[in-house]
């Protein structure tokens, strides 16, 4: 898609993949951070990670297996997070530990068997060997994430303001919430190969957290988060290739540094001076 700008095919595919993954994750990330369900996003990224490891072990497509695993977790987490009287945090902690254990078990076992499996791609991402279909799938999910926000903008803003107040206002909170979990599941599964299971969480939370330091409107948040995520991801991919550095970890570090700077210079955190 961007071949007219970047003649090198590998770099071009990497930039496209990073761009689409960052748009999808950051747009959904704005909702995730405001609903205080970061731990749900965290658990789902690790479910995708575990699903991919299990799928590869059984000779299945890693991405399809990741989607199935994260959708299963989404189906469990939806009803679970609505039961206010249950300690969701504890159960998320258990699920997260279980997903991580499954992923590590299968990765270690494949390495023990000498199955020729490279675990680092699943852990930290790999942007050098992407199929065109993977990039198209990411493009579709990033467009779907943007459309989801555009169509349900007012419902989403009410829900992220206060879920109970939104429900009391007559908004159908549950379908929107379940659609959000579904979109997160698909987005993290498709982004897994590019960003890696251990770093994906950074894309879900940090761009939204950076945008939050500056934006005073919800519209501003939904515009700024993907802009920040896209710019940093594209720059990370380009610099990574130029200097032969690992793209995913490099971009994750850049996001974290930018977040610290944003907190320091945020106008929202400035204490008013004067008497």
């Amino acid at each position: 898609m961007l071949e007219f700008l970047i003649p090198n095919n590998i770099v071009c595919h990497a930039v496209e993949a990073m761009l689409f993954a960052s748009i999808a994750c950051s747009v959904l990330g704005v909702i995730i951070t405001h609903l205080n369900i970061s731990s749900i996003g965290f658990t789902m990224t690790h479910a995708a990670f575990a699903g991919a490891a299990v799928g590869i072990f059984f000779g299945l497509d890693g991405t399809i297996a990741a989607i199935l695993a994260s959708l299963t977790i989404a189906a469990i987490l939806g009803p679970l997070s609505e039961k206010a009287r249950m300690s969701t945090d504890t159960i998320l902690g258990v699920l997260f530990g279980m997903m991580m254990a499954i992923a590590i078990f299968f990765i270690a076992y494949m390495q023990y068997l000498g199955a020729g499996f490279n675990a680092s791609a699943l852990l930290f991402g790999n942007v050098t060997s992407l199929y065109r279909e993977e990039i198209y799938a990411l493009a579709v999910i990033s467009v779907a994430a943007v459309l989801f926000v555009l169509i349900f903008f007012k419902e989403i803003t009410a829900i992220i303001f206060d879920r109970r107040i939104a429900e009391a206002a007559g908004i159908r909170v549950r379908p929107i919430y379940y659609a959000l979990l579904f979109m997160i599941a698909i987005s993290v599964s498709l982004s897994l190969n590019i960003i890696g299971g251990l770093l994906l969480y950074v894309w879900l939370v940090t761009p939204a957290a950076i945008a939050y330091q500056f934006c005073t409107t919800v519209r501003g948040l939904f515009l700024s988060a993907p802009l920040v995520a896209g710019s940093v991801s594209v720059a990370g991919a380009w610099i990574g290739f130029q200097y032969s550095l690992p793209v995913g970890p490099l971009t994750a570090v850049a996001f974290s540094a930018l977040f610290l700077m944003a907190v320091m210079i945020s106008p929202k955190r400035r204490v008013p001076t004067g008497t």
Binding site: K154, V218, G220
Partner: peptide, 15 residues
């Protein structure tokens, strides 16, 4: 720090 003005919140009653 939440990005919701009073007018925006009152409008949510209509959503």
């Amino acid at each position: 720090l939440a990005p919701f003005t009073v007018r925006h919140v009152v409008m949510m009653g209509r959503y």
